[in-house]
């Protein structure tokens, strides 16, 4: 049966605390921490972008899969911060992991849903029998305008998933998608920072689609929240995924392992894929997992996975997600963060 044969995650070492950002803008840090349930977020180094993080996550996925990269037939990188407007991220990843030239690459964009979109298509091609292995990646160096609420959450990270038919570590039991045209968050061409609809991003946007996709896949499979050991949702802040889980009937204990946002921030296209990686780091054979992404504009992809016996063989092969979040951190002051993120205007060469 088709499923995940390898996975890998990458989180940059740099962090900035909510207090450090709030201090600069005269904002009340405790109310942000309470309101958004955020403590700190990851920050990419100046020499890191979607391509570099995708390569690192992909290398870890190849290591866990134990496959020849030449057998990967497709690479899809989902992001809203591809380094080039014209030139693919996927070809660099393919070249770096040694998967060229017999391969299909495409870069996907769908706000924060681009990562699960890449997973969906890679999985679909494997199921259709068109390719042996397919690699889907969700990665972002998320943009948030200085002083905007998004600045407290917009972070960086990547997660990569290789799908195949043999030696899977988790089967894909079902997939389901739910989309409408909902203008809750957008970034126009040539604009550096996104705009959003404030509270409009909640009920008619995030909750409608996340709940719609989750209820849709539960109905399709005949499963209920009791049948799952873990669930991970898109996590733009701490509150939304907890509330979505409660509305669907999932106990908090099933959400916490994949609830990374208080320590990681919102990695946009990487958010639910990274949540899934943290779950796969600890899941036991037979554990059933629900993943529901969300991308503004708007839509959600849902997957049901079941861990296999082989998962235990690969969990400790490389870095685990919570280990990256809790250890080896390097805290930045706002000035250094602003320089790293290109928020300071300089004279152009």
């Amino acid at each position: 049966m088709e499923g995940i044969v390898g996975y890998g995650a990458y989180v940059p070492r740099n962090r900035i605390k909510v207090e450090e950002i709030a201090k600069v803008w005269g904002a009340d840090a405790p109310s942000y921490k309470r309101g958004l349930m955020l403590e700190e977020k990851s920050v990419p180094s100046p020499d890191q972008d979607v391509i570099t993080m995708s390569v690192e996550a992909a290398r870890r996925a190849v290591l866990r899969a134990g496959i020849n990269p030449k057998d990967i037939g497709a690479i899809y990188v989902g992001s809203e911060s591809h380094p080039y407007a014209v030139k693919p991220s996927g070809t660099v990843v393919a070249e770096a992991i040694g998967a060229t030239p017999d391969i299909h690459c495409a870069d996907f964009e769908f706000a924060c849903k681009a990562g699960s979109e890449g997973m969906f298509v890679a999985f679909g091609l494997v199921r259709a029998g068109l390719i042996k292995y397919g690699l889907g990646i969700g990665a972002d160096t998320s943009q948030g305008a200085p002083g905007d609420a998004l600045e407290y959450s917009a972070s960086a990270g990547a997660a990569a998933y290789i799908f195949g038919k043999d030696d899977v570590i988790a089967t894909v039991d079902a997939s389901y998608s739910y989309m409408t045209d909902t203008p809750d968050f957008w970034r126009r061409e040539y604009q550096f920072y996104p705009r959003h609809g404030g509270r409009f991003t909640g009920e008619p946007a995030y909750f409608k689609h996340v709940l719609g996709a989750a209820r849709g896949i539960l109905e399709q499979t005949g499963l209920t929240p009791k049948d799952f050991k873990y669930v991970t949702f898109h996590q733009p802040n701490g509150k939304f995924p907890l509330r979505a889980g409660a509305m669907l009937g999932f106990e908090k204990a099933k959400i916490e392992q994949g609830w990374l946002v208080p320590k990681l921030g919102n990695t946009y296209s990487g958010a639910s894929p990274l949540g899934l990686s943290a779950i796969l780091d600890v899941a036991k054979p037979g554990d059933r997992i629900l993943m529901v992404s969300y991308g503004s504009g708007a839509g959600s992809d849902a997957f049901v996975f079941t861990a296999t016996k082989r998962l235990a063989d690969v969990q400790n092969m490389t870095f685990k997600t919570w280990d990256m979040l809790n250890n080896h951190k390097r805290y930045l002051e706002y000035g250094e963060y602003a320089k790293f993120r290109g928020k300071i205007n300089k004279i152009q060469d």
């Binding site: 100046p46 570099t52 690192e56 152009q348």
Partner: peptide, 16 residues
Amino acid sequence: EFRKLQKDGESGVLCY
């Protein structure tokens, strides 16, 4: 690790 080595100004090629 895989990193960006250089960028050719604001419009040139990115080197990894």
